[in-house]
Design a protein around this nucleic acid. Structure first.
Length: 457
RNA sequence: GUGGUUGUAGCUCAGCUGGUUAGAGCAUCAGAUUGUGGUUCUGAGGGUCGCGGGUUCGAAUCCCGUCUUCCACCCCA
């Protein structure tokens, strides 16, 4: 019985054409990562739920894909008197989950191999992650992240380097971006200043929506979260703050300069912008106090990158986490990193038509098949081309020339080599340029040099 | 998780207030062209109308459920 082929919700296939473009993105990103001394690692698609749960907040826990235990996973389930809920059943039948991001598995990795790594440890990691979210524009259930992180260094130079790599990558991809930067310590200082340090998360999440829903709705949300009106009143000058990054930092100093975390955060940001100015990166980076970022583990700088010419969620995000390795038993190791969302970058480049034309070309030369004897005549020459570094193929079947030509045409193969009875007898080949349609005859011993000349003029 | 939306050939879509045998374009394959693609002409194949149930003499069409698509919220790359 034939079944309809289909994919799980929110997942996609990638054809050769798509892969050529995706590889273009991955290669660009990788090249930059390596240029700054980062080394690749990979971790499994699955992690134990114990390493995943509780790292991303309640929302994140809900979005984790859980993997059922193998075998008769129900046999050991203990059912009490109370009714069975998914929440109670889940830990009994599932102990593994698909990774939700690359940062937490990396933290696990660092702790596990701490004695073999030399710090600061700089790694990059390009792998898919899974989230059981509802798919929509730019949001998938399986997508690739390209993470760069450095752990074991507190220096703000690392933050500056991440911004610089971000600049290099999007410059190479020709996407115009703005890097928004904020600092959790500043946010904490603000929460402290208005007298609600406990409500940091609620406050930042509400502020994060400022440019989306406006000041009044933000204030409404703060009220529903139980923030007193005097506190909201004290918050207003921060929300209305204007000027460039430096001016904002200066103005903030008057407001939260006295708070412990606030002053620390301001100090960090001033130093970071010093670096960015020296590196001439202050044009693409800006301080954005409304940037909150949900991931719970960030403690210092936070980043988000948005494409300027396309309305789309962030294509890149990251920040500093002072104690992510702490939960795995390795305290006081600070890390900072950023993650590039390859799939969203793809969507941005697709809408802006930024992919280079020749990204799909693969085979450079094809030998048509005129029959058994003729193929034997061609085979050594195809091999010689491959040894010279050209990609060459020989059509496997003795099909009609029309079909073989059509194959070459649709695969965008620029050069076709033909050898039938006549060519074999006269020890030559017929070369056809598929772009111009021109044909020329070449002596067999001249074939390789002629093709090389055409391919690398 | 909440609200809305979509589903007809491989793809993009027509298909009227329910009424004979569900259509088009593109794509595929074959031929015109026995050693020549991208243009043209001719022909052919391809459908449980997402799936399940209901209403009806009769359902692609109306109703319910379910899955899927896309969108908004939540959250996020």
């Amino acid at each position: 019985m034939a079944q309809k082929p289909a994919l799980p919700k929110g997942t996609r296939d990638f054809s050769p054409e798509l892969m050529a473009r995706r590889d273009f993105i991955f290669n660009t990103i990788k090249t930059v990562f390596k240029r700054y001394g980062y080394q690749p690692i990979e971790t499994p698609a699955m992690e134990n739920l114990s390493t995943l749960l509780g790292k991303y907040g309640d929302e994140g826990d809900k979005l984790l894909f859980r993997v059922l235990n193998s075998g008769d996973f129900l046999s050991s389930v203990k059912q009490g008197d109370e009714s069975l809920t998914a929440e109670k059943l889940s830990p009994q039948i599932s102990e593994k989950g698909l990774r939700y991001d690359l940062t937490v598995p990396f933290a696990r990795f660092v702790v596990q191999y701490r004695n073999e790594l030399s710090f600061p440890f700089k790694r990059y990691q390009i792998q898919p992650v899974w989230r059981a979210d509802r798919p929509q524009k730019g949001r998938y259930r399986e997508f690739y992240q390209c993470d760069v992180d450095v752990v074991g260094s507190n220096s703000l130079l690392n933050e500056a380097e991440l911004v610089q790599m971000t600049h290099d990558i999007f410059d190479a991809l020709q996407i115009k971006v703005i890097v928004k930067i904020n600092n959790r310590k500043i946010l904490a200082g603000i929460a402290e200043y208005i007298g609600r340090p406990d409500a940091l998360i609620d406050i930042t999440v509400a502020i994060d929506k400022l440019d989306k829903i406006g000041i009044e709705q933000v204030n409404t949300e703060l009220i529903t979260k139980g923030i007193e009106s005097e506190a909201i009143e004290k918050l207003q000058p921060v929300l209305f703050m204007e000027g460039n990054s430096r001016e904002k930092l200066k103005a903030l100093d008057k407001i939260i300069g006295q708070t412990i975390s606030g002053s620390k955060g301001l100090e960090e940001m001033n130093l970071l912008f010093d670096f960015l100015e020296i590196m001439h990166l202050d044009k693409i980076a800006e301080l954005d106090l409304t940037l909150a970022r949900g991931l719970n583990y960030y403690t210092g700088a936070i980043f988000e990158v948005k494409a300027l010419d396309v309305p789309m969620g962030s294509i890149c995000g990251g920040g500093r986490y002072d104690d992510l390795t702490g939960v795995f038993g390795m305290p006081d190791v600070s890390g900072v990193g950023i993650s590039f969302g390859a799939d969203r970058i793809y969507d941005v480049m697709q809408t802006l038509n930024l992919f280079p034309e020749n990204a799909t070309a693969s085979t450079q030369v094809i030998f048509l098949n005129f029959g058994a004897k003729e193929v034997i005549y061609c085979l050594p020459y195809a091999n010689q081309l491959r040894q010279k570094g050209l990609s060459a193929e020989v059509f496997p079947d003795d099909a009609k020339l029309k079909k073989q030509m059509k194959y070459a045409d649709q695969k965008h193969i620029p050069l076709v080599v033909m050898a039938g009875e006549t060519e074999v007898a006269e020890q030559k080949f017929t070369l056809k340029n598929m772009l111009s349609g021109e044909q020329l005859e070449v002596a067999a011993d001249q074939l390789i040099t002629t093709i090389l000349k055409i391919q690398n003029p």
